[in-house]
Nucleic acid binder design. Structure first.
Lengths: 262, 262
DNA sequence: CGGTACTTTGACCGACATCAACAAGCGTGG
DNA sequence: CCACGCTTGTTGATGTCGGTCAAAGTACCG
């Protein structure tokens, strides 16, 4: 069993295995596989650029600690933040389809990532159909989260967007940190949040101030407390995409993976 | 055969195989697999709802002819169109992760789809790692297209959004119809386009009129002619995600699939 | 012919952007 | 220890892009 430190969020010995294990019973070989993806690790400081958009897309990354984000820059300099990556996430699955990275990758806090070459996926595909299915499923979850994001940006106004954003973050954190209830640290600038939601930093500030005054949330330093989760969920029409997935179709039933083929 | 119109575009004998074959040399067993997914077919009339959001997500669909789209409805009745599906597309890969469908699915034109149960994917995973990789890759392409969409909706103004939208459609059509150069039929109402781009039908109308007056596009009935593709690409910062993918990491090299494993 | 779906155009309005100024916190270097 | 720059958050004044509402025109279809 992956160890349990006393730290609140990031310092689990192995976030990836913990996250995967949340969804599925992992066999020993599967655990070994996952662990081997994290042999090499590398750290970056806050605001460091891990990978530029357009760079060769030969690496994937497992987030070991800290937060980072994928983004694109428009010709006129505007930025769109596409995804926030938390400990336990595998970054870059979509880039696998292309020779060059579609998005940039930047550190939101000091981070530790474990890069691994994308052809390592190939091994997993051969050795463990069950792990393959899980990795695919995690990719599809990301996909669905993007659909939610499109809906949010395309058809919701500022306060609904912010509410949705906060709820998504909490849901995500709750997977790997079951002790999180309503308060969490949000190490993201309002400019970043704005760039994720298609708003400006100024309007994010106004919106969050209003939400706080309305008693929906509370802010202490960079920590956020969700005061009225029910109300937030209602206003943002929020669905938790992280809580539960369908593993019924996975090869090998719900038991740990059997020996691969014949 | 479902009624055969004289139409020039959709009535290829097998769009899925054609599209897959565009990216990869397919082995005979692979072709057989793909063909078997399309044994059953079913037709819907324009505006019919194929599947409601929240329905059991046990089926995937291959589009045989016609256009349809995925969407979500907000509590206040507003709609966000998430994806347009063309002949050859596989619909519902992301729904595989969940027990219930995340999006609704509706016919934009009269359509013919081939539904197949999602556990059929399981077979493919076992039998053909190469086809597995391709299906995953197609899923990731969709993913990347969604990233583009987020960028478009989040940070671009109306004319840039429309330009991007049109270019994406042409790129997509060009995969399965190499004869399309600059003119194509666009069987989508402006309301639908607006719902896809986070705009209103009114403003889509205004925008397209302006673009026509500016000589960027030309409209005859429902057909669109891209008059100045260069200019459109520049204004929308458009990247073609469909033209070329990376298959170098696929199992079995670039040759037609070898016998699986060992 | 009447009904429905779709497009177009005009008048008006509002949500959010833009610009700008200020304050607070923090790391760095003297 | 203070000074400085940098990043971040807040608040106000003003502007604009796209929404809303409404009406009229057109095409299609039963």
């Amino acid at each position: 069993m992956p160890g349990n430190t006393s730290s609140k969020r990031t310092q689990k010995t192995n976030c990836l295995i913990e996250k995967m294990g949340y969804y599925l019973d992992l066999s020993d070989p599967d655990i070994a596989h996952l662990a081997s993806l994290q042999k090499h690790e590398q750290t970056w400081r806050q605001r460091d650029i891990v990978r530029e958009s357009g760079a060769p897309a030969d690496l994937l990354y497992v987030v070991k600690s800290g937060w980072c984000y994928s983004y694109t820059i428009m010709v006129d300099g505007r930025r769109q933040v596409l995804q926030i990556h938390h400990p336990g996430d595998v970054i870059g699955i979509p880039d696998v389809a292309y020779e060059r990275a579609v998005t940039g990758l930047q550190a939101a806090t000091d981070i530790c990532l474990c890069p691994f070459p994308k052809n390592r996926l190939d091994e997993i595909f051969r050795d463990s159909p069950r792990l393959t299915a899980l990795i695919m499923t995690l990719g599809m979850m990301d996909h669905v989260v993007l659909l939610d994001r499109i809906r949010t940006i395309g058809r919701m106004n500022a306060d609904e967007r912010v509410a949705h954003f906060l709820l998504e973050i909490v849901s995500r954190l709750r997977i790997t940190s079951s002790d999180i209830t309503d308060t969490f640290d949000l190490p993201l600038s309002q400019e970043l949040i704005g760039d994720a939601l298609g708003l400006t930093n100024v309007y994010v500030s106004r919106t969050m101030s209003l939400m706080e005054r309305a008693g929906l949330i509370q802010r202490m330093d960079r920590a956020i407390r969700i005061c009225d989760e029910r109300a937030l969920k209602d206003m943002a029409d929020f669905q938790d995409r992280y809580y539960r997935i369908d593993t019924s179709w996975f090869p090998g039933g719900t038991a740990p993976a059997l020996e691969p083929n014949t």
